[in-house]
Simulated assay, not measured.
Amino acid sequence: MPVELITVPCLSDNYAFLIHDPQTGQTALVDVPEAAPVQAVLDQRGWSLTDILITHHHDDHVQGLQALRGDARVVGAKADAHRLPRLDTEVADGDTITVCGQQVHIFDVSGHTIGHIAFHMPETQLLFTADSLMAMGCGRLFEGTPSQMWNSLQKLRALPGDTTVCSGHEYTMTNVRFALSLEPNNPKIMSRSEATRTARENGHATVPSLLSLECETNPFLRADDPVLAQAIDMADAQPAEIFTEIRARRDRF
């Protein structure tokens, strides 16, 4: 991999991500839940931030920014600029920027919030999704509609299966239990449940995850899967209706 990726646990269950280009020395940060854990890694590695990429406006993704921004370029959604910290570069769906020597493609993934974006680095097959696509789940719909989120997830699902999904929270165990409530006998979900339990018992993060694994086991990417539709007695429903139903069930879970 041309860049180094470090997952940084923050707050109680958030993740930030550091990307480092060893050739240029450039270092980027995706989201800033809090400053201290990120600064500790920077100090340990002797790195300085050149870029900070922000996915959306929620405090648990931006509240550490001021303490870390220094001379770094701050990148965020133009549509969200009015409620984000000051941006140096405003981006929108379909834009491409360069970070750590890599092309970064911008996806609008509205649903959790309006104006939420994801960052895709195709050369290194890294995808930073924050609270849109999550490990075994997707973000609660605070601002958008189920239809918006389903459309957003389909964009991400279309990327290559060997893409590494860097999402924003350690919610995987709860998400697995929810997936099993929908399909208690699904062998792939059962296997992921065991792997997730083992990882957490050993103090390991379950994020990042492979997109191919998400496509196989994440119910929110499978709203058009007849097997899931049959399991929840919605065989005749449209995918958007199925997504709406499982998101509502997850909210009550």
Rank of each mutant, 00 (worst) to 15 (best):
D224Y: 00
R250P: 07
A199F: 06
A237D: 08
P187M: 10
P208E: 12
V176S: 03
S193A: 15
R222G: 02
D233N: 04
L211G: 03
M190E: 11
Q238F: 11
M190K: 11
A223I: 03
A195H: 06
G203M: 10
M234T: 03
E214Y: 06
L210N: 05
D251C: 08
Q238M: 13
S193D: 10
L210D: 06
N175S: 13
L182D: 00
F220Q: 00
V227H: 06
H204I: 14
A235Y: 03
M234C: 11
E216L: 07
G203I: 11
P187L: 10
P184A: 11
T217F: 01
Q230W: 00
C215R: 13
V207D: 05
D251M: 09
R247T: 15
T196V: 15
S212I: 12
S181A: 15
A240T: 13
D225S: 05
D236F: 03
D233S: 04
S212K: 12
R192G: 01
L221E: 12
M234G: 04
L211D: 03
V176E: 03
A231Q: 08
L228V: 09
E241Y: 02
P219V: 05
F243Q: 04
T174V: 15
R192N: 07
L221Q: 07
S181Q: 15
N185H: 09
A240N: 07
T196W: 07
L221C: 09
A223F: 01
A199T: 02
H204E: 15
H204D: 15
S191L: 13
R250D: 03
I232N: 05
A248K: 09
T206S: 09
E241Q: 14
N202Y: 05
I246S: 02
T196G: 04
S212F: 10
T198E: 13
I232V: 11
E183F: 05
A235V: 10
I232F: 02
L180R: 12
D251V: 14
V176R: 00
P208N: 11
A179T: 08
F243N: 02
R249P: 10
E183P: 01
S212H: 14
R197V: 14
N218D: 09
T198H: 06
S191E: 14
N202F: 06
V227S: 10
S209N: 06
V176I: 15
R177Q: 14
P184Y: 02
N202Q: 14
T196K: 04
L182A: 08
D236M: 04
D233Y: 01
A237T: 04
T196D: 03
P184Q: 10
M190D: 05
E241H: 05
R192E: 08
L213Q: 12
V176D: 04
I189C: 03
S181L: 12
P184M: 08
D224R: 00
C215Q: 13
P219L: 08
P208L: 11
T198M: 08
A240G: 07
R250G: 01
A195M: 13
R247I: 15
E216S: 02
N185P: 01
A179I: 06
A199P: 05
T206A: 09
P226F: 02
L182C: 04
R197C: 12
Q238Y: 12
V176A: 06
L213V: 13
D251P: 00
S191A: 15
E183Y: 08
S181T: 10
S181Y: 06
G203Y: 11
